[in-house]
């Protein structure tokens, strides 16, 4: 469904990605692991069009998307939940969700989808009319995910959903992610610092180091891999 081949990208003169290649087949959760600065977020940014690759190709459903503008990529069916959530803090929860559906033209379906988001995250329904600024960190993360789902994506890019959240909330959010991926038949590319958490729900994983893939395998194999355990799982 998604394939990156030898993707290079840079901020100014500093290379962030040095030849990333990865495949995400339809369905399931693919986890991208790596240390800080390994290029995990940059990979997602390259896919969603925020970072222009200088070399290599990105294909979605067989169509090249690496030269498309971000809004076109959203229309293709890829939604990106960025690191730090980036919700519209001065707008209401409802307005945030409506903006998520910006690229869609089916008004009635949008209303049904908002209700569906509220069924996954009931707390958002209770706070629909509130300014997003007033939500707690966990609720903001839920809103960010909900907003991304409103675009009806087939591929969801999730960047560090656990960042800054209490462990109990993190477990809740991860179990919802798992549920959503199954119920919506959604492919998820999950970037996560907490490797054991990510591998617990992922089907397949890639390990990044200084902008390139150094290891890939099924989640199960990765959990058993000696060097992954030493470097990322901490035992």
């Amino acid at each position: 469904m998604l394939s990156l081949r030898n993707v290079h990208a840079a901020y100014g003169s500093v290379l962030a990605l040095r030849g990333i290649s990865l495949e995400a087949p339809e369905g399931g959760i693919i986890s991208v692991l790596g240390a800080n600065g390994a290029g995990k977020s940059s990979t997602l940014r390259a896919i969603s069009g925020l970072l222009r690759p200088s070399e290599g190709t990105i294909e979605f459903d067989g169509k090249p998307i690496d030269k498309m503008r971000p809004e076109k990529i959203v229309q293709m069916g890829i939604s990106h939940v960025p690191e730090g959530r980036q919700i519209f803090t001065e707008l209401t929860v409802m307005e945030n969700l409506r903006l998520g559906a910006y690229t869609r033209r089916d008004g009635d379906a949008v209303k049904r989808d908002i209700d569906r988001i509220f069924s996954y995250f009931p707390v958002l329904g209770e706070r629909a009319k509130q300014q997003a600024l007033l939500l707690s960190g966990g609720e903001q993360q839920m809103l960010a995910i909900g907003r991304a789902l409103m675009a009806k994506p087939r591929l969801l890019l999730l960047d560090e959903p656990s960042l800054g959240l209490a462990p109990i909330l993190v477990r809740e959010i991860f179990s919802i992610i798992k549920t959503i991926s199954e119920e919506e038949k959604l492919t998820i590319l999950l970037v996560e610092q907490d490797a054991s958490l990510a591998l617990s729900i992922a089907d397949y994983g890639y390990v990044l180091e200084s902008g390139t893939v150094v290891l890939e395998d099924t989640a199960e194999q990765l959990r058993g891999n000696e060097s992954v355990r030493r470097s990322y799982l901490g035992y």
Binding site: Y11, G12, S13, A16
Partner: peptide, 27 residues
């Protein structure tokens, strides 16, 4: 750049601000 690279998301805007005009090549 290396210092800001880690926080990918802030990076672009931070750079822009430091540059004054927002084009990394002009650093």
């Amino acid at each position: 750049l290396a210092a800001v690279r880690a926080g990918d998301f802030g990076a672009a805007s931070m750079l822009a601000r430091q540059l004054g005009l927002g084009r990394p090549a002009e650093r």
